[in-house]
């Protein structure tokens, strides 16, 4: 049900992000979304790409430490209250959000938001029941 996200460990020094994007470009990988979580000494670059396995291989070859995790890609109506509805559902169930970031959509009617939440197995049926659309990896690739 989830989509695969790459997490890359980066020290806080100049040029490291450029090294990642260059390695991905050379491997002909398209980045769909990204976010960075940082501390004083290092950051974690989270990436959604069109081909996660190949991207991981390319980054590992370039000397990076990479983790693969499943996250949820949720379609959010691109209008006021769209995101609030979804977060309300999770809040009522007491499900915490570890982190989230937005995706560049193309349709204009929907935004896509990447969620990493607790208790995914419980959350997915509840979200679906409330009519929330959760994208599969294939659906995401084809956007």
């Amino acid at each position: 049900m989830g989509v695969k996200q790459l997490s890359v460990f980066l020290e806080n020094k100049s040029g490291r992000l450029a090294d990642v994007t260059r390695a991905l470009a050379q491997a002909n990988i398209n980045i769909r979304a990204l976010s960075i979580a940082d501390t004083i000494d290092y950051g974690l670059l989270r990436l959604i790409v069109d081909n996660p396995e190949r991207a991981r291989a390319a980054l590992t070859d370039a000397g990076f430490t990479v983790a693969l995790t499943e996250v949820l890609a949720i379609e959010v109506p691109d209008k006021p209250g769209g995101l609030a509805n979804i977060i309300d559902i999770l809040a009522k169930e007491g499900i915490n959000i570890e982190y989230m970031y937005a995706f560049v959509g193309r349709s204009g009617e929907h935004a896509i938001v990447i969620f990493r939440i607790e208790r995914v197995d419980e959350a997915v049926p509840i979200l679906r029941e409330k009519g929330v659309r959760i994208l599969t990896g294939e659906e995401l690739q084809s956007l």
Partner: peptide
């Protein structure tokens, strides 16, 4: 040096 076992998607686990 970080190892693949340490790195995950969450800063908290690194900390």
């Amino acid at each position: 040096e970080v190892s693949p076992q340490i790195v995950s998607d969450e800063v908290r686990s690194l900390e």
